[in-house]
Write a protein that binds this DNA or RNA. Structure first.
Lengths: 255, 255
DNA sequence: CCATCTTTGTGCACGCGTTCACAAAGACAT
DNA sequence: ATGTCTTTGTGAACGCGTGCACAAAGATGG
């Protein structure tokens, strides 16, 4: 759930509902774990439990992909892994570039989950000349002057933006102009892109604020009168929210 | 987007729909930017554009909070900033702990958006004894043996998990037992928690897979016959998806 | 070959979220 | 004070997503 969702409204892609697509990676992860334990088949009930969803929902999700189960038995794990991988497009190689190699960009570059799912870090790009040539996660950082060339030479269609907020839109524009059609945005900004380009947004600050809302609600239920939390955060401040301009601060990066 | 959403089904909290709560931080960010530019009032149309949403949706969202606008004029920026901050619980101090100080945990610790929204990093916790005492982002890392004491001494109710997947559930259990009731999970695992505990999930791998799905779809529309992408990723592989066990790999961490 | 038992696949109903479209409300000028 | 003009706030319709509940399908045993 991280999630914020800057996305097309509800253009269900080829009959598969967006909500289902979002769950397929979840199923895939659970199935991969079963596959590693050499489990041959799994029932919708078991798999649903492993993925943390309702079994009816899971069966309906799979029904959009086709009838891959056997009644009275369940689903063949290996076959399902293959079908979902194929549906998600993970049976092909996806070169990605990461733009903005700060704390977060470096963490992403080191992410192990990339390669194991068909994603390959084709290049790391940063605007700081001092970073150029320096290896991060074994890959030398390249300067953003060469962004267009890098995109084209590597046939990159997926870009990850981990820059400060102020740089995000310009970088996005350049990525799109160079041919990128899917963007994962970690910068705390609303990106404007032309039709046909997909943007997904990951925003730590938003997730925390949503948690705070529910946390406050829980606290408020115990003390119906108002603000004071149970045993947690005391020192109720009046004006702590509008102190700092963080609009120009990267998603995860030294302030 | 990003987000995966492990969350309560649809228990709308005190009449404010979950979908609205998820958008409030977006509005708040746009309003903060306006406030810094000393813009006194803003119309629903303008603000909606800045936040990247429909203006009708924005007005309906605000209507759940109360009637804070003036017809014919718009909304008072400062007043709205305050109201949304209060609604989200950002007018109080929220101490948070980050567990798992790897690449990602360190990046989160350095995140500038924390303090500016009322969140305060109360402690960094890691299981590696070699990390203990070492300062990250100016805060000394503490060993996980002291987790319970740290939580209680600081009155922490929000925890961030950035550990490898295998460690996530045990850490989660300990956090919950110590009194944490909201968890932001970066580990690629489904966390099981008792009722009353909120979990939000951020999963990079899932976001990328969703993008890959749409990317493949776009490519497939141009070449109706099948798999070959337009100019991007060539070298179509058959078996690249089920190679690596990444079920035990942290969200963002060296494999 | 038939009966039984398990598990899938899905028709259906319900509720949340989104969007349209408009009446009500207030600002502002005359 | 009255009329006009702008913008909010919301009633209503629609569509997507979810979950129930059950019939159909196949496995398995006698």
């Amino acid at each position: 759930m991280a999630t914020g969702r800057t996305h097309r409204p509800a253009t269900r892609s080829r009959g598969i509902p967006e909500a289902t697509v979002a769950r397929l990676p979840l199923y895939l992860r659970a199935l991969t774990a079963l596959s590693e334990r050499s489990v041959p088949t799994v029932s919708s009930e078991e798999l649903a439990a492993a993925a943390g969803v309702n079994s009816a929902k899971l069966r309906k999700d799979f029904s959009y992909l086709g009838s891959y189960g056997t009644r009275g038995v369940g689903y063949d794990v290996e076959y399902l892994v293959y079908q979902i991988s194929r549906e998600l497009g993970l049976t092909q190689d996806w070169p990605v570039v990461i733009v903005g190699i700060g704390n977060l960009g470096a963490a992403l570059a080191n992410y192990g989950g990339f390669a194991s799912r068909g994603f390959r870090v084709a290049a790391l790009i940063d605007a700081d000349p001092a970073m150029a040539g320096k290896p991060v996660a074994g890959i030398p950082v390249q300067h953003s002057d060469d962004l267009e060339k890098i995109i084209q030479d590597n046939g990159v269609s997926i870009g990850v933006i981990a820059t400060p907020a102020g740089a995000a839109q310009p970088v996005c524009d350049r990525l799109v102009a160079a041919g990128v059609t899917s963007i994962l945005n970690f910068a705390p900004t609303v990106l404007t892109v032309p039709d046909g380009v997909d943007v997904r947004k990951v925003d730590l600050s938003i997730e925390l604020q949503i948690l705070a809302f529910h946390e406050q609600r829980k606290a408020g239920e115990e003390h119906p009168d108002g603000a004071a939390p149970p045993a947690a955060a005391r020192e109720e401040s009046d004006e702590s929210a509008d102190q700092g301009p963080d609009g120009d601060v990267p998603a995860v990066m030294p302030a």
